[in-house]
Amino acid sequence: MVEGDLVEMGKFIGAGLACTGMGGAAVGVGHVVGNFLSGALRNPSAAPGQTATMFIGIAFAEALGIFSFLVALLLMYA
């Protein structure tokens, strides 16, 4: 059952650690959307013009989470 070597183990541990970065992305996206929503509820008339900005913000926050996912994938497969 136990096969592979230390390098293999290190890869998998590293991949798992890299995935914690996705939590940061989750916090970031939640922060962006939550603040957008609280602003939108205060001034609903200004909200539709700013949804695009919100999506851009989400995209920036999310990209970093995707980077950490990519690091995990690279560790596991490349």
């Binding site: 999310e62 990209a63 995707i66 980077f67 994938l73």
Partner: peptide, 16 residues
């Protein structure tokens, strides 16, 4: 880089 990896990474992640 971020522009392309965002899209490819999202697609890859979801399907994986």
């Amino acid at each position: 880089i971020s522009h392309s990896i965002r899209l490819a990474g999202n697609m890859m992640a979801g399907h994986a």
